[in-house]
Amino acid sequence: MKKIAIAIDGPAAAGKSTIAKRVANNLGYTYIDTGAMYRCVAYYALVKDVDFHDENAVCRLLPEIKIKLMPDNTVYLNDRDVTADIRVNEISAGASIVSAYSKVR
């Protein structure tokens, strides 16, 4: 049986992750938190003092970024646990900006 990818879109705090995890588990799929990935890019830009709105500067950082999403929902950025660090309002806002860049996607 060929498996497909399922994407769930919607506003923040709507329960997308909760539903996605349940659906993935029921179907035997791997759950990938793309929101956490975008948050990592925003977090790294913040750490490197790069303006979220500077698309070229943000994209130049991409080769330096290594993200690991663990089954227990722990998120590592360059081998550092950033699970809590990426869940703050400033990073959420930055993630919304950087996720629109095609090279980030």
Rank of each mutant, 00 (worst) to 15 (best):
P63V: 11
L62Y: 04
V41N: 02
D85N: 13
V88P: 01
T30E: 15
L69Q: 10
M37Y: 01
V23M: 13
V41T: 03
A12N: 10
V50W: 09
K66A: 12
D54S: 13
S96N: 14
D49C: 05
I8R: 11
K48H: 09
D51A: 09
I4T: 12
I19W: 05
C59N: 15
I8W: 01
V23N: 06
G10R: 09
D72H: 03
I91V: 15
V23H: 11
I67F: 01
T83S: 15
K66G: 05
V47N: 08
A13H: 06
A84S: 11
R22C: 06
D49H: 12
I67G: 03
I86M: 06
D85E: 14
G94S: 11
I4A: 12
K68W: 00
K68A: 12
N25P: 00
K2L: 10
I65A: 09
Y76L: 15
D85L: 13
R60I: 04
R60P: 00
G94V: 02
I6R: 10
K2S: 12
E90C: 03
K21T: 08
R105C: 15
D81L: 07
I8V: 14
K21Q: 13
K48N: 12
D51Y: 14
K68M: 08
Y43P: 01
N73T: 12
A24M: 02
N56W: 01
K3E: 04
L77N: 01
Y29G: 05
L27S: 03
A84K: 15
R80A: 11
E55L: 05
A20T: 05
K66R: 14
S92Q: 09
D54W: 05
G10L: 05
D51F: 12
L61N: 11
G15R: 14
S102V: 07
S92L: 04
